[in-house]
């Protein structure tokens, strides 16, 4: 009787099947719809439409504004926090880190609705949808900025900092010339993790912006809800392309340089 042999190669099959079914196939379908018209003929008209449609362009602009603002605010808050958590000798630093991350464990919709009630209490709701959306986004995505930054900063070799002091650089110069450049992988990782999802996360803008602002995610949903699959797919493809270019430009595919530093999350 022949023994049943399972080599390591065979163990990869379910994973490959999963990838084909849930990643590759949907991608092909999206790209197919993006480049066809409603009759199934090849066409690039969908893309032309996007760039000539005021609503679409406005949504892209709003998405970019929200994403850039959110990322900038997250970075401004996240970097000092991560720096203090990683570099100071505070005894309660690990506790503090947990406190910053705990919100991630609470249901997202619940948090957003709570924030909505808070805004309505202080009278901010309906006044400035962009502001409330950005605050909500920051609240939601801040941990994603802090974690990669914390990982890189805590791995930063202390002797680099000492070498800089030793060579005559004071604390500010050392931060600018050594700490900051060496923590760039974490910065890029954090930006990637905040910028990309905020482009499309329309739940926040729906709840906190009360539907007064439309971001890309909402637009895509609208197209699909109104059975315009081709336009929805085209917009998704465009977004995908932007993200690929962004990842490539920030060295996200360059594993050797940033692989370890980009840390636990990517």
């Amino acid at each position: 009787m022949r023994a049943l042999k399972i080599s390591r190669k065979h163990l990869g099959y379910p994973y490959a099947l999963f990838l084909i079914l849930f990643v590759l196939l949907p991608l092909i379908i999206i790209v197919y719809y993006a480049f066809t018209d409603s009759d199934g003929h090849f066409s690039i008209l969908n893309f032309v439409n996007i760039f000539s449609d005021i609503t679409a362009l406005a949504a892209i602009l709003t998405s970019l504004s929200v994403a850039i603002l959110t990322t900038a605010v997250c970075l401004l808050i996240g970097y000092p926090v991560a720096y203090i958590l990683a570099r100071s000798r505070l005894k309660f630093a690990p506790t503090l880190l947990i406190l910053f991350i705990t919100p991630m464990w609470i249901n997202f919709v619940l948090r957003m609705n709570a924030l909505k009630e808070f805004f309505s209490l202080v009278g901010l709701l309906d006044k400035n949808p962009l502001l409330t959306t950005v605050i909500g986004m920051v609240y939601d995505f801040l941990p994603f900025m802090i974690l990669p930054l914390y990982t890189t900063l805590s791995k930063l070799n202390n002797s680099m900092i000492e070498a800089s002091y030793d060579l005559g650089a004071n604390k500010v110069t050392t931060f600018l010339k050594v700490t900051l450049p060496l923590s760039m992988p974490g910065v890029i990782s954090g930006i990637t993790m905040v910028f990309m999802p905020t482009m499309t996360n329309y739940v926040v803008s729906e709840i906190l912006g009360r539907g007064q602002i439309t971001i890309l995610g909402k637009l895509i949903e609208n197209y699909f809800m109104h059975s315009n699959w081709n336009m929805g797919a085209a917009l998704s493809t465009l977004l995908l392309a932007v993200m690929l270019i962004f990842t490539w430009a920030t060295g996200g595919f360059n594993d050797q340089q940033n692989g370890n530093a980009r840390g636990a999350l990517l």
Partner: peptide
């Protein structure tokens, strides 16, 4: 000035 045990050169 110091020569460090593990060199501590700036990798960037």
């Amino acid at each position: 000035n110091t020569v460090f045990q593990r060199y501590a050169l700036f990798p960037h």
